[in-house]
Amino acid sequence: MIRLYATLLMMLIPFCSTADEELVIYGSREQALMAPLLHSYHAETGVTVRYVREKSDRLLQRLAAEGDKSPADLLLTADIGILETAREMGLLQARRSQLLSTLIPARYRDPQGVWYGLSLRARMIVFAADRIGKYELLDYADLASPALKGRVCIRSLKHVYNQSLIAALVARWGEDSVRQWLNGLLENLAGAPQGGDRDQVRAVANGACDVAVVNSYYYAMMLNASDKPDQEAAGRVALIWPESGVHVNISGGGVTRHASDPQLAIDFLEFLAGFDSQRLFAELNHEYPAVEGVPVSHTLIGLGAFEADFRPLALIARQRKKALQLINDAAVEP
Protein backbone atom coordinates (compact mmCIF):
# COMPACT_ATOMS: atom_id res chain seq x y z
CA MET A 1 0.00 0.00 0.00
CA ILE A 2 2.89 2.39 0.86
CA ARG A 3 4.37 1.67 -2.53
CA LEU A 4 1.08 2.42 -4.24
CA TYR A 5 0.84 5.81 -2.49
CA ALA A 6 4.49 6.44 -3.26
CA THR A 7 3.93 5.71 -6.95
CA LEU A 8 0.91 8.02 -7.02
CA LEU A 9 2.93 10.77 -5.36
CA MET A 10 5.70 10.17 -7.86
CA MET A 11 3.25 10.65 -10.72
CA LEU A 12 2.15 13.96 -9.24
CA ILE A 13 5.62 15.43 -8.87
CA PRO A 14 6.14 16.69 -12.45
CA PHE A 15 2.80 18.50 -12.36
CA CYS A 16 3.31 20.24 -9.05
CA SER A 17 6.42 22.21 -9.74
CA THR A 18 6.49 25.95 -9.82
CA ALA A 19 10.27 26.36 -9.81
CA ASP A 20 12.40 26.59 -12.94
CA GLU A 21 15.07 24.20 -11.67
CA GLU A 22 14.92 20.59 -12.75
CA LEU A 23 17.03 17.71 -11.54
CA VAL A 24 17.32 14.59 -13.67
CA ILE A 25 18.28 11.42 -11.87
CA TYR A 26 19.25 8.13 -13.47
CA GLY A 27 18.67 5.47 -10.86
CA SER A 28 18.41 1.74 -10.42
CA ARG A 29 16.50 1.90 -7.16
CA GLU A 30 12.82 1.07 -7.42
CA GLN A 31 10.64 4.06 -8.14
CA ALA A 32 8.31 3.25 -5.25
CA LEU A 33 11.23 3.40 -2.81
CA MET A 34 12.47 6.69 -4.21
CA ALA A 35 9.11 8.42 -4.53
CA PRO A 36 8.70 9.57 -0.90
CA LEU A 37 12.21 11.03 -0.94
CA LEU A 38 11.71 12.77 -4.28
CA HIS A 39 8.41 14.15 -3.12
CA SER A 40 9.76 15.58 0.12
CA TYR A 41 12.74 17.09 -1.75
CA HIS A 42 10.36 18.75 -4.17
CA ALA A 43 8.19 19.97 -1.31
CA GLU A 44 11.20 21.37 0.51
CA THR A 45 12.97 23.07 -2.41
CA GLY A 46 10.43 23.38 -5.21
CA VAL A 47 12.88 21.71 -7.59
CA THR A 48 11.28 19.41 -10.14
CA VAL A 49 12.80 15.97 -10.01
CA ARG A 50 12.69 13.61 -12.99
CA TYR A 51 13.61 10.08 -12.03
CA VAL A 52 14.57 7.66 -14.79
CA ARG A 53 14.66 4.10 -13.55
CA GLU A 54 16.56 1.33 -15.31
CA LYS A 55 18.91 -1.49 -14.42
CA SER A 56 22.40 -0.35 -13.41
CA ASP A 57 24.29 -1.70 -16.45
CA ARG A 58 21.77 -0.14 -18.83
CA LEU A 59 22.04 3.20 -17.07
CA LEU A 60 25.82 3.17 -17.53
CA GLN A 61 25.40 2.28 -21.22
CA ARG A 62 22.84 5.04 -21.64
CA LEU A 63 25.02 7.64 -19.92
CA ALA A 64 27.99 6.63 -22.07
CA ALA A 65 25.91 6.74 -25.28
CA GLU A 66 24.35 10.11 -24.46
CA GLY A 67 27.74 11.65 -23.68
CA ASP A 68 27.63 15.43 -23.17
CA LYS A 69 24.00 15.49 -24.35
CA SER A 70 22.88 13.46 -21.37
CA PRO A 71 20.16 15.19 -19.36
CA ALA A 72 21.21 13.29 -16.22
CA ASP A 73 22.62 15.26 -13.30
CA LEU A 74 22.95 12.41 -10.87
CA LEU A 75 23.48 8.66 -10.96
CA LEU A 76 22.00 6.68 -8.08
CA THR A 77 22.79 3.00 -8.01
CA ALA A 78 23.59 0.07 -5.78
CA ASP A 79 26.99 -1.55 -5.22
CA ILE A 80 30.45 -0.12 -5.18
CA GLY A 81 31.26 -2.22 -8.28
CA ILE A 82 28.79 -0.25 -10.42
CA LEU A 83 29.82 3.12 -9.02
CA GLU A 84 33.49 2.36 -9.60
CA THR A 85 32.77 1.16 -13.13
CA ALA A 86 30.95 4.46 -13.75
CA ARG A 87 33.98 6.31 -12.39
CA GLU A 88 36.37 4.32 -14.60
CA MET A 89 34.18 4.97 -17.66
CA GLY A 90 34.43 8.70 -16.94
CA LEU A 91 30.68 9.04 -16.39
CA LEU A 92 30.99 10.77 -13.00
CA GLN A 93 32.77 13.86 -11.79
CA ALA A 94 34.46 14.63 -8.47
CA ARG A 95 32.45 17.01 -6.33
CA ARG A 96 33.36 17.76 -2.75
CA SER A 97 30.81 18.48 -0.09
CA GLN A 98 31.74 19.45 3.44
CA LEU A 99 28.41 18.20 4.71
CA LEU A 100 28.61 14.80 3.00
CA SER A 101 32.20 14.36 4.18
CA THR A 102 31.11 15.06 7.76
CA LEU A 103 28.03 12.87 7.73
CA ILE A 104 29.19 9.86 5.74
CA PRO A 105 32.05 7.80 7.22
CA ALA A 106 35.19 7.93 5.08
CA ARG A 107 35.09 4.23 4.26
CA TYR A 108 31.72 4.61 2.54
CA ARG A 109 32.64 7.44 0.16
CA ASP A 110 35.16 8.13 -2.56
CA PRO A 111 38.09 10.16 -1.20
CA GLN A 112 37.82 12.57 -4.14
CA GLY A 113 34.05 12.90 -3.94
CA VAL A 114 33.21 10.95 -7.11
CA TRP A 115 30.62 8.88 -5.27
CA TYR A 116 29.01 8.85 -1.86
CA GLY A 117 27.41 5.92 -0.07
CA LEU A 118 23.89 6.66 1.17
CA SER A 119 22.76 3.34 2.61
CA LEU A 120 24.48 0.10 3.55
CA ARG A 121 23.78 -3.58 2.98
CA ALA A 122 25.76 -6.34 4.64
CA ARG A 123 26.71 -9.67 3.01
CA MET A 124 25.67 -12.22 5.62
CA ILE A 125 25.75 -16.01 5.90
CA VAL A 126 22.53 -17.89 6.52
CA PHE A 127 22.45 -21.56 7.49
CA ALA A 128 20.22 -24.38 8.60
CA ALA A 129 20.83 -24.41 12.35
CA ASP A 130 19.80 -28.06 12.73
CA ARG A 131 22.31 -29.26 10.11
CA ILE A 132 25.34 -27.11 10.91
CA GLY A 133 27.46 -28.01 13.91
CA LYS A 134 29.20 -25.98 16.56
CA TYR A 135 32.01 -23.74 15.28
CA GLU A 136 31.75 -25.14 11.79
CA LEU A 137 30.76 -21.70 10.59
CA LEU A 138 32.19 -18.46 11.91
CA ASP A 139 33.44 -16.58 8.91
CA TYR A 140 33.48 -16.29 5.12
CA ALA A 141 36.66 -18.41 5.28
CA ASP A 142 34.63 -21.36 6.59
CA LEU A 143 32.59 -21.49 3.35
CA ALA A 144 35.60 -23.27 1.84
CA SER A 145 35.93 -25.71 4.76
CA PRO A 146 35.87 -29.39 3.69
CA ALA A 147 33.18 -29.92 6.35
CA LEU A 148 30.74 -28.07 4.08
CA LYS A 149 31.35 -30.12 0.93
CA GLY A 150 28.27 -30.06 -1.25
CA ARG A 151 26.34 -27.95 1.25
CA VAL A 152 26.84 -24.34 0.10
CA CYS A 153 24.56 -22.16 -2.04
CA ILE A 154 25.55 -18.83 -3.57
CA ARG A 155 24.28 -16.83 -6.53
CA SER A 156 26.56 -16.47 -9.56
CA LEU A 157 30.03 -15.43 -8.45
CA LYS A 158 30.13 -13.08 -11.41
CA HIS A 159 27.22 -11.10 -10.02
CA VAL A 160 28.37 -7.69 -8.84
CA TYR A 161 27.44 -8.44 -5.20
CA ASN A 162 29.80 -11.42 -5.13
CA GLN A 163 32.48 -9.68 -7.17
CA SER A 164 32.56 -6.93 -4.54
CA LEU A 165 32.62 -9.49 -1.73
CA ILE A 166 35.53 -11.30 -3.32
CA ALA A 167 37.32 -7.98 -3.93
CA ALA A 168 36.90 -7.26 -0.21
CA LEU A 169 38.34 -10.69 0.63
CA VAL A 170 41.31 -10.06 -1.70
CA ALA A 171 41.94 -6.81 0.20
CA ARG A 172 41.66 -8.75 3.46
CA TRP A 173 43.50 -12.03 2.79
CA GLY A 174 45.53 -11.45 -0.37
CA GLU A 175 45.17 -12.94 -3.83
CA ASP A 176 46.61 -16.39 -3.12
CA SER A 177 44.43 -17.07 -0.10
CA VAL A 178 41.32 -16.00 -2.01
CA ARG A 179 42.25 -18.27 -4.93
CA GLN A 180 42.42 -21.23 -2.56
CA TRP A 181 39.24 -20.14 -0.86
CA LEU A 182 37.41 -19.85 -4.20
CA ASN A 183 38.52 -23.34 -5.18
CA GLY A 184 37.30 -24.66 -1.84
CA LEU A 185 34.02 -22.78 -2.19
CA LEU A 186 33.37 -24.18 -5.66
CA GLU A 187 34.09 -27.66 -4.32
CA ASN A 188 31.51 -27.05 -1.59
CA LEU A 189 28.69 -25.86 -3.85
CA ALA A 190 25.53 -27.92 -3.62
CA GLY A 191 24.83 -27.21 -7.30
CA ALA A 192 25.47 -24.75 -10.08
CA PRO A 193 24.86 -21.19 -8.83
CA GLN A 194 21.42 -19.99 -9.79
CA GLY A 195 18.79 -17.43 -8.89
CA GLY A 196 19.07 -14.34 -6.75
CA ASP A 197 19.79 -13.87 -3.05
CA ARG A 198 16.23 -14.75 -2.03
CA ASP A 199 16.54 -18.06 -3.89
CA GLN A 200 19.59 -18.96 -1.78
CA VAL A 201 17.56 -18.43 1.43
CA ARG A 202 14.74 -20.55 -0.01
CA ALA A 203 17.26 -23.26 -0.95
CA VAL A 204 18.59 -23.46 2.63
CA ALA A 205 15.05 -23.44 4.03
CA ASN A 206 13.89 -26.29 1.80
CA GLY A 207 17.01 -28.38 2.40
CA ALA A 208 18.66 -28.04 -1.04
CA CYS A 209 21.77 -26.82 0.78
CA ASP A 210 22.82 -25.94 4.33
CA VAL A 211 24.65 -22.61 4.00
CA ALA A 212 24.18 -19.58 1.75
CA VAL A 213 25.49 -16.06 1.29
CA VAL A 214 22.91 -13.28 1.00
CA ASN A 215 22.51 -9.54 1.32
CA SER A 216 20.99 -8.39 4.62
CA TYR A 217 18.15 -6.38 3.10
CA TYR A 218 16.90 -9.32 1.03
CA TYR A 219 16.78 -11.45 4.15
CA ALA A 220 15.11 -8.66 6.18
CA MET A 221 12.56 -8.11 3.40
CA MET A 222 11.77 -11.84 3.36
CA LEU A 223 11.20 -11.72 7.13
CA ASN A 224 8.68 -8.93 6.52
CA ALA A 225 7.27 -10.36 3.29
CA SER A 226 3.53 -10.48 2.72
CA ASP A 227 4.25 -13.71 0.86
CA LYS A 228 3.84 -16.39 3.54
CA PRO A 229 6.20 -19.06 2.10
CA ASP A 230 9.02 -16.50 1.83
CA GLN A 231 8.42 -15.30 5.38
CA GLU A 232 8.44 -18.88 6.66
CA ALA A 233 11.58 -19.72 4.65
CA ALA A 234 13.43 -16.76 6.18
CA GLY A 235 12.16 -17.73 9.63
CA ARG A 236 13.49 -21.27 9.24
CA VAL A 237 17.12 -20.28 8.63
CA ALA A 238 19.64 -18.88 11.12
CA LEU A 239 22.20 -16.21 10.37
CA ILE A 240 25.77 -15.52 11.22
CA TRP A 241 27.76 -12.33 10.94
CA PRO A 242 31.25 -13.30 9.73
CA GLU A 243 33.60 -12.61 12.61
CA SER A 244 36.56 -11.32 10.62
CA GLY A 245 34.46 -8.29 9.65
CA VAL A 246 31.28 -8.23 7.63
CA HIS A 247 31.53 -7.05 4.02
CA VAL A 248 29.31 -3.99 3.82
CA ASN A 249 28.42 -2.58 0.44
CA ILE A 250 26.69 0.65 -0.39
CA SER A 251 23.86 2.06 -2.37
CA GLY A 252 24.98 5.49 -3.36
CA GLY A 253 25.34 8.13 -5.99
CA GLY A 254 27.60 10.49 -7.83
CA VAL A 255 27.29 13.63 -9.94
CA THR A 256 27.37 12.80 -13.65
CA ARG A 257 30.22 14.17 -15.73
CA HIS A 258 27.98 16.32 -17.93
CA ALA A 259 25.51 17.42 -15.25
CA SER A 260 23.93 20.73 -16.21
CA ASP A 261 23.74 21.74 -12.55
CA PRO A 262 26.31 19.79 -10.48
CA GLN A 263 25.63 21.84 -7.36
CA LEU A 264 21.95 20.93 -7.49
CA ALA A 265 22.94 17.25 -7.74
CA ILE A 266 25.17 17.61 -4.68
CA ASP A 267 22.35 19.42 -2.94
CA PHE A 268 20.11 16.41 -3.55
CA LEU A 269 22.80 14.01 -2.27
CA GLU A 270 23.07 16.14 0.88
CA PHE A 271 19.31 15.91 1.22
CA LEU A 272 19.55 12.10 0.99
CA ALA A 273 22.22 12.11 3.70
CA GLY A 274 19.85 14.12 5.92
CA PHE A 275 18.20 12.61 8.92
CA ASP A 276 14.72 12.11 7.49
CA SER A 277 15.94 10.57 4.24
CA GLN A 278 18.31 8.24 6.07
CA ARG A 279 15.46 7.11 8.30
CA LEU A 280 13.33 6.43 5.23
CA PHE A 281 16.12 4.29 3.76
CA ALA A 282 16.16 2.34 6.99
CA GLU A 283 12.41 2.02 7.18
CA LEU A 284 11.42 1.31 3.58
CA ASN A 285 14.13 -1.03 2.34
CA HIS A 286 15.64 -2.44 5.54
CA GLU A 287 19.02 -0.97 4.69
CA TYR A 288 21.47 0.32 7.27
CA PRO A 289 21.77 4.11 7.16
CA ALA A 290 25.19 5.34 6.04
CA VAL A 291 25.03 8.14 8.60
CA GLU A 292 25.93 6.91 12.08
CA GLY A 293 23.36 7.33 14.83
CA VAL A 294 20.28 7.20 12.62
CA PRO A 295 17.76 4.69 14.02
CA VAL A 296 17.44 1.43 12.13
CA SER A 297 14.37 -0.72 11.56
CA HIS A 298 13.11 -3.16 14.20
CA THR A 299 13.87 -6.05 11.85
CA LEU A 300 17.52 -5.03 11.46
CA ILE A 301 17.92 -4.55 15.20
CA GLY A 302 16.48 -8.05 15.58
CA LEU A 303 19.28 -9.38 13.35
CA GLY A 304 21.79 -8.07 15.88
CA ALA A 305 24.93 -5.99 15.72
CA PHE A 306 28.07 -6.87 13.81
CA GLU A 307 31.48 -5.42 13.14
CA ALA A 308 31.82 -4.19 9.60
CA ASP A 309 35.00 -4.52 7.57
CA PHE A 310 37.01 -1.42 8.43
CA ARG A 311 38.66 -1.15 4.99
CA PRO A 312 37.45 1.75 2.83
CA LEU A 313 35.26 0.66 -0.06
CA ALA A 314 37.35 2.78 -2.41
CA LEU A 315 40.34 0.53 -1.62
CA ILE A 316 38.27 -2.63 -1.87
CA ALA A 317 37.05 -1.47 -5.28
CA ARG A 318 40.65 -1.36 -6.50
CA GLN A 319 40.70 -5.17 -6.12
CA ARG A 320 37.73 -5.70 -8.45
CA LYS A 321 39.78 -6.63 -11.48
CA LYS A 322 41.81 -9.15 -9.49
CA ALA A 323 38.59 -10.52 -8.04
CA LEU A 324 37.05 -10.94 -11.48
CA GLN A 325 40.22 -12.62 -12.76
CA LEU A 326 40.18 -15.01 -9.80
CA ILE A 327 36.52 -15.80 -10.41
CA ASN A 328 37.15 -16.44 -14.11
CA ASP A 329 40.14 -18.63 -13.31
CA ALA A 330 38.33 -20.68 -10.73
CA ALA A 331 34.92 -20.79 -12.33
CA VAL A 332 33.47 -24.08 -13.37
CA GLU A 333 30.04 -22.57 -13.42
CA PRO A 334 28.42 -21.85 -16.79
Binding site: W241, Y288, E292, I301, E307
Partner: peptide, 12 residues
Protein backbone atom coordinates in the same frame (compact mmCIF):
# COMPACT_ATOMS: atom_id res chain seq x y z
CA UNK B 1 12.37 3.56 22.19
CA UNK B 2 14.64 3.68 19.17
CA UNK B 3 17.85 1.85 18.41
CA UNK B 4 20.81 2.02 16.11
CA UNK B 5 23.91 0.01 15.34
CA UNK B 6 27.53 1.05 15.63
CA UNK B 7 28.93 -0.97 12.76
CA UNK B 8 32.53 0.01 13.44
CA UNK B 9 32.36 -1.66 16.88
CA UNK B 10 29.63 -4.24 16.53
CA UNK B 11 27.42 -2.63 19.17
CA UNK B 12 23.81 -1.65 19.34
Amino acid sequence: AQATLLLSRGWE
